[in-house]
Structures are given as structure tokens and as C-alpha cells.
Simulated assay, not measured.
Amino acid sequence: MLIGYTERECDVLTALQRGVEPVARPFQTMALPEAAVVDLLRRALSEGLVRRFGGIFDARRLGYRSVLCALDVAPDRLDTAAAVVCASDGVTHCYERRPVGEMDGAAYPGLWFTMAQLQDDFDRSLAQVRSVLGDHISPVCLIELPAVRRFKIDVVFDLRTRDRDELFPGAVAVSVAADKTEDAIVFTEQDRALVRCLDQQIPVVDRPFLAVAGQVGMSEDAVLATLARWRDAGVLRRVAAVLHHREAGFKANAMCVWPVQGDVIAAGRQLADCREVTHCYQRPRFDGFAFDLYAMIHTPSWPQTQTLFDAIASECGLCGGRMFASVREFKKSSMRYFA
């Protein structure tokens, strides 16, 4: 169990990750009294356990394009390249990742980052990153790895057991075209203002959506109705607490990849059914990196992560895979939509 928090408090923090209902008093149905939940969430935020409490959106349904990118860069230039990448507003995550275990003679990219921008702005923003990188390294070996299919993406950590807590078991594969977004809803300026308010930290009070309504010039009922509509349309995944998973004890995080020779959709669905997997995608292969099924796993220690990687591969009948340890975190932030 997490040090400094009671078992009941850990239960509540786990429930807050799953999300609250868009109702006037969302904290009243928790395992602690409403005031205690508010105090607990404020404490977890101030101590750095929770990164933020707010809206978690489907970027594609907001009209955004999000792509995983890999940069092959010499170790002595990696920090410089990371600084360039992290300076881009569209970059939300940036890590140094290195293969674990015996080397197979292949040279793999060391810098991995996620770029997200409005569809019409994406190519220009990534081209700008390439251009600035070119001032510091040559050649710029930047590979784009858009999601071909998404099998699983939502993350909840059980703070009592320090284990994964399954949120959406049996996730169904969703096709995500590499060159277009999902059908985007048309958002008014007030809608955009509401998204901007929700995608960061919302007020932690007994009636958070009333406070949000005051910030955007809407009534509380209008905000709640809009959130319910967005949730039903798949625009809003949930309003929830987002952990600093390293602070919560999940320090050994790895990107796992496999080459799938047969039915990649069946393999992806089976992999997504593993409760320890937090993200699962099919991505295109590229020269020197013949992997197309990706998953993220998190545990408290590297021996546990290696054991978990081996167990998942065996359970799902996957072979020829590699595990890439996230050895340094250069940037991890929540997306600022319609900024």
C-alpha cells in the first residue's frame, strides 16, 4: 500500500482515476465523506502524487492528430535533441528509451516522443521540429509511427496493491487511419473555452463543475449537459485524477514491441486483455524496426517488468519481441487543446 495513505484513501484515489460522473456533487458517492475526498485530492495534488484532476479527451474527436515519433540520434547529441523536441508546444511526452537484454546487433532509436496538433497544423509543426533539429544534428533520422489500430489506452493504477487496475477489459480494436482524424465535432468558441478549462487542473471543491461554469460563463446545468453529451459521443473519456505514476511507485516503465506475422487484430485484442497493459496499438513497421504491435507496461522494479514482459509474451503467444526501458523522462504534460 502507498506510504502515508490509508487503505480507504488509496481506494478513493483509485476510484478517482476511473473518473467521476458529470453531476453537481461528484464526490458524494465515494468511500469517504465528500469533504474528506476534497481534502484527500488536494493533498495528493500538493504532494505530487496526482498530476492533475480534469478532463481526459479523445484528441482525434477534437480534430487533433497525434503521432508517436522516434529519433535516431547519437548518445552525445541526445540531450540537445531532447531540448529541441521538448520546446515544441505540440510535444506532450518525450523519453530516452533503450532496449533491455541481449543486443541483437541492431541500432535502435533512442529518443521517443508524442506530437499532437490540430490536423491542419500537424505537418507544419513537425516540419519545424525537423528543421530546428537539423541545426544541431545531421542527418535527422526522424520516423513517424501513427496508430494504425488502437486496442487500449486508459490507465488506472491500484494504489493499494501497486498493480494495474483494469478499466475497460476486453477492449475492441478501433481502426485509426494514419492520415486522418475521427469525424470531428464542430466546436463553438464557448465549447473550446470549456475544453481549455477542463484539459488542465479544474477546481477541487465540492461542486467543481459549478466552479468551471463560472470560469467559462455558462450555467452549471449547461456544463453538465455538455459533458454528458461529449462523453456519449466519445469526445470526453472521463473527468478523473491523473497520477504521477513514478511518485505512486510505478518506476519501471517499458515500451514493449513484437512482430506479428499472422492476425495482428486478434493479437492486439488478446494483448489488450492483459490487465497489466496500459496502452496497446498497432503501428507501421520501418526499416531496421520490424515491429508492429506496441504495448506499455509499468511495475515498481525492472526485474518485475522483465518478468511481466516474458509472462505477457508467453500468455499471448508472441515471440521475437523487445522491451525498451524508459530510462529518462524529458517531458510529460497534459495536452493543451485549442490553445
Score class of each variant (00 low, 15 high):
residue 142 L to C: 05
residue 143 I to R: 06
residue 146 P to S: 05
residue 147 A to G: 04
residue 148 V to C: 07
residue 148 V to D: 14
residue 148 V to G: 00
residue 149 R to P: 01
residue 151 F to D: 05
residue 151 F to Y: 04
residue 153 I to D: 08
residue 157 F to E: 06
residue 158 D to N: 15
residue 159 L to C: 06
residue 159 L to Q: 07
residue 159 L to F: 06
residue 162 R to M: 14
residue 163 D to V: 05
residue 165 D to T: 05
residue 165 D to H: 11
residue 166 E to S: 12
residue 166 E to Q: 14
residue 166 E to D: 13
residue 166 E to C: 05
residue 167 L to H: 12
residue 171 A to R: 03
residue 174 V to L: 08
residue 177 A to W: 11
residue 177 A to C: 12
residue 178 A to E: 11
residue 179 D to S: 13
residue 180 K to I: 07
residue 181 T to H: 01
residue 182 E to Y: 14
residue 184 A to I: 00
residue 185 I to Q: 15
residue 185 I to F: 10
residue 186 V to Y: 06
residue 186 V to P: 00
residue 188 T to W: 10
residue 190 Q to W: 09
residue 191 D to Q: 08
residue 195 V to H: 02
residue 199 D to S: 08
residue 200 Q to W: 04
residue 202 I to P: 10
residue 205 V to G: 10
residue 205 V to F: 10
residue 205 V to R: 12
residue 207 R to L: 07
residue 207 R to G: 10
residue 209 F to H: 12
residue 213 A to V: 01
residue 213 A to N: 04
residue 215 Q to S: 03
residue 217 G to L: 01
residue 220 E to W: 02
residue 222 A to E: 14
residue 224 L to S: 01
residue 225 A to L: 03
residue 227 L to F: 09
residue 233 A to T: 07
residue 235 V to W: 02
residue 235 V to R: 10
residue 235 V to Y: 04
residue 236 L to H: 09
residue 239 V to W: 09
residue 241 A to R: 04
residue 242 V to R: 14
residue 248 A to M: 01
residue 248 A to R: 06
residue 252 A to M: 06
residue 255 M to V: 15
residue 257 V to C: 06
residue 257 V to I: 06
residue 263 D to Y: 03
residue 264 V to L: 13
residue 265 I to K: 13
residue 265 I to E: 13
residue 265 I to R: 15
residue 266 A to I: 04
residue 268 G to Y: 07
residue 270 Q to W: 01
residue 274 C to H: 05
residue 275 R to E: 11
residue 276 E to G: 03
residue 277 V to M: 14
residue 280 C to P: 08
residue 281 Y to K: 13
residue 282 Q to H: 09
residue 283 R to S: 00
residue 283 R to G: 02
residue 285 R to Q: 06
residue 285 R to A: 11
residue 285 R to P: 01
residue 289 F to P: 02
residue 290 A to T: 10
